[in-house]
Structure formats: C-alpha cells, structure tokens
Write a protein that binds this DNA or RNA. Structure first.
Lengths: 163, 163, 163, 163
DNA sequence: TTTT
DNA sequence: TTTT
C-alpha cells in the first residue's frame, strides 16, 4: 500500500560490470549492479556533438536477484522497473553519506540470444554458487568489486533487509 | 536522442515545502522541491503497522519551473515525470558528495480546487517576481531555505545549465 | 514472464460512473469501469480552445476489484497501472467486434477525503454484497448498466478468467 | 495540458511487419505498425506451458514516423511510449467500429546493430520516397498491407490530423 | 518536511 | 459518462 503515492522508475540501459550477487544467511539473494543510460544531442551554439552518460545503482532481491546474476553480464541491455530508495551509510572516514538506488522488482533481458541466456548452457565464467550451508551474515562475493558512482558499499551485513 | 536507452521516473507524492524558484541571468527559471512518497505495510512477524517515507529531490527548468512555483505549495499532491541525474558537489568542509535528483519535464497537479490553483486568484504569500533586469548569476530566493535530505545545495551559479 | 517484452499502461483520470463489480462462482471479483483522461490546447490557427476526452475501459480482478468497488465512485480521481488486452466478442447482431481494455493490477486513490473512502462510513448507495453462496456463473449486478464507449459487454460468463 | 490526468503507454515488443509510412499533402508523415508483446506462464492446474501474444496498433506522426519507417523492420525490437486513443470508423459493410491505438511520441530501437540502423547503409529494400510534389490527400503506400488485428484501416484521408 |  |  502506498497511500495515494507512486514511486516508479523505468530504466533501459547497459550493465557497467557483471552483476554482483551475495546471499544472506536466510539464503535470500541480493544483487547489485550499475546500469548506464546515455543521451546524445547537438549543442546549438557550438554545433558540437555531446553525449552524457548517467550511471544508476540497482539493487534486486530474492529470486529476481538470482535471475539477474545468472543471465546478465557486463554490457547486457536490460529493462528494469522499480522504485527509488535513498539510504544513509558511513564511509571509512566516518563521514555520513547518502546514496540513491533503484530497487528493481521487474527485469527484462533485451539482448538477442547470447551466452548465458539459456539455462542449460554452460556459463562463460565461474559463478558464485548459492552456498549449501551458511553460518551468518552475507557471504562476500569473489567477483571483482565493480566501480561504483560514489563508492557506496552494498547494503551492510547487519542492515534490515526489507522483506 | 538516447541511444537505445531509457531513463524515466514517475512520482506521485506530496511537497514537503513550498517550491523554491530562482532565475538565471538569462531569465530561465529553476525550481527545486522535495516530494514525499510513502508506503505502509503490516510486518508479518510482529503484526505491527509500519510506514516508510521516501524523499525525492526534484528539479524543474524553464516554463514548467514557473508553473510549479505559481501553483504548488507545501502539501500539494503532484504527478511528476522526468529522468534521474546524479551530480557531484563539494560541501562546506571540502568533501565531495553525490546527489541524485529527478529532473522533471512533466507535471500534473492532483489536488482539488485549492488556493493558488486559479491564475486569477491572489496568491497566499508573496511571490518572487521574475526580475525585469538581472546583472549576473542566480538571484537568491527570499523563500526560506528548505531542509533537504542531505543538504545538497541547488545547482551552483556557475554550473552549466543543460539547455 | 514476458519474453523480453513490456506491456504497460499508466492512467490518471476520473471515473465516468460508479465501478461495476461482479463475482464469479469461485468468489473471485471482477470490476469494470470507465476512466476519462482529457487534454486541452489552443488551436494555433483559429486560436480556439479545444478539449479532447479519451475514455478508457478498465478491468480489475480479485482483491483489487473489491477495493475499487468499495472506495471508488463516479467522478473519483484514480491512478491505474496495468496492461493492454484486446478481446473479441460478438454483438447481438452476430457481428464480431474487438475491444481494447486496460487490465489494471495497481490502483491509487488520488482524491482527498471523500464519501466512501473511509471503510467505516456509510456508503452513499446500496452496495452489492459478495454473495455467501453461489450456484453458477456470474451474478448480475444490480447497479445500473454504464454506457460504454462501444457497448462491449463485460467478460462473458463462460469465458476463461485468466487466473 | 491535460487537466490533472495522465494517459501513458509503454511498450517493448517486436514489429509484426515492416512499418507502413504514408505522407499527407502537407508532407507530414504518418507511420502505422503493429507490435507484439507476449507473456508465458505455466498453468498451475494442467502444468502446461502457455503463451499469450498481444498485438498493439501503433501510430506515429511527423519526424518520428520517418525514423520508424527508415530504421524499423518486421521483427525489430522497439521501445515505444505514447498515449491511448480510440477512434471510430466505418467498415465496408457500413458498420461502425472502434479501434484503440497507441499514438507514440517516443521510440528507441533495441536491436543490436542491424541492417538499416546506420543512416549511411543501403536499405535492404526499396523505400517509399517522400514525394517531391503531391496533389492531394494521402499517397497510397506500395508496401504490402499488413495484417491488422481487426482490419481497421489507417486514418482516413479526410480525417483531421491532430497537429 | 509531506500525505493517508 | 468524468474532471479542470
């Protein structure tokens, strides 16, 4: 329920890096990724061609997170629908920071047939497997850290997961 | 043109404060406002009622900025459509910060008949008039500074306005 | 799943009549309503003010159908999100016809406090109650038949309900 | 202006046939096309895989119509944004019919590099050229008639074009 | 800081 | 048939 309000984002863009999937002790998956959208136009004064890229931080939970991790790769074109959420975190120097993310609840892959899109095909690189047993908190991913627009860390281990 | 990408936000929410309108030397208006969306649900474990409010920073340019300034007030319900844009700024302590805003290009007022909605009615508070002549930079608004979600300042005087 | 496709409609408009709710034998509710959106502009040639109203046929199922029936009335302003669906039917003269409807899966009431919006207030007119027992097919509503844009009947009794 | 209402459609789908572009005497282009979206799911009772395809009739005007005609082909994947419009027409037997179309005002091509997407490449089939001179009404297209969901004709010659 |  |  949302009390006569609407908070909706629709993005079509390309992943800046492979998605990063982690698992909570409950087994619930969280996927973080960055998606680029870009605009190009011609400056009327200078007649120069300009291009501006916008980077979006995306978070996906549960089953959809696993789908994202299994089928999307760096460069994949994707449709995402979700809501905006700004969260507060403290950086390594103790400075409070705010980061706005898109919490996506719908995803459509827009690439043509590609490696990894068939669930039977062999993935092109080692995948983090959903661990059979976990002892606590989040498992850190062995995927390389993606460059993020402002180095905000993914949701903290001890943070309330909203479901 | 946007190169096969889409960057779209749709918000229906309530203004947390009166909109703040400033004018560039060119006479172009910029409107800043914050809009709240809220969700409520019942926690399945504790059976408690919960509510979460999300605050959105909104920027509007040119003619639409003037309309927003003329017709919207604190508490107004509004439909906004636009795109996400994250900009970098430096706070008073020299710390680099990022703020994500919605650059709105469509607006629908969703309140019933209310003060200020008729263009002929007397506005309920003094309006900043579009100055007949300006000498440079932005005119500072005489409206009270609204508290913002992270104290990001509005777009700087010397910043490139994207049109 | 939708195979890399998206079918989405977002409407904010006003109900042309009270919603019409019927119940399947299963007890599942179906709500039909018509919603108006309107545009106005000034003709540049004649300088005349013009207005165009578009009428949308909306179908809502299950729990959301009951909410619509309980809280919406003729004139209510509503946000609807859903998908487009065109269905074929045969009119009384045996002519095959097509009607496009919005199958809504999200609804936000955008009116301020109004009659019928509180679940405790007395409804302004008799409500069709969800029957305690049913023997077959749909119960016909005792609400007056709304004039529809092309007289398409609501979904037929023997039609597969898509859930 | 739209009086506190919103009429918005967002479609991602594939063209069922090459777009059909015609030109008004004024030189303004109109493009008609049909776009398919599809859903697939598993019936919980029978455990059968089901798929449902929805066909959308799309109309595009002016510059965007020419872009659609130049770059889209049967099978192209496209993002479209627009509004719903239902129009009345009379079929060859004198029967009044209604057809709902999406009047698109935004378009993004979502295919990878393909024939026709570069403005310098030779189109794969003869294009209807914008006629240098016209004497009246619409030029009939030499492209084959696309199968439409209900054989509604494109906008009539003598119909008011809404711009 | 809003609203229901 | 709605609404502003």
């Amino acid at each position: 329920m949302s009390k006569g309000t609407v908070n909706k984002v629709i993005i079509i863009g390309n992943l800046g890096a492979d998605p990063e999937v982690r698992y909570a002790t409950s087994g619930a998956a969280i996927c973080n990724m960055t998606v680029a959208t870009s605009e190009s136009w011609t400056d009327k004064n200078t007649n120069e061609k300009k291009e501006q890229t916008e980077w979006h931080r995306v978070v996906i939970y549960q089953r959809l997170a696993e789908i994202a991790g299994d089928y999307l790769r760096k460069g994949s074109k994707v449709y995402l629908e979700g809501k905006l959420k700004t969260r507060k975190w403290t950086d390594k120097d103790g400075i409070e920071r705010f980061t706005t993310e898109i919490v996506a609840n719908e995803l459509q892959m827009l690439d043509g047939k590609q490696d990894g899109q068939s669930t039977t095909s062999q993935p092109s690189k080692p995948q983090q497997q959903r661990p059979a047993q976990q002892t606590g908190g989040y498992q850190s991913s062995n995927q390389r850290q993606q460059a993020s627009i402002n180095n905000a860390p993914p949701l903290d281990f001890d943070q309330d997961i909203p479901f």
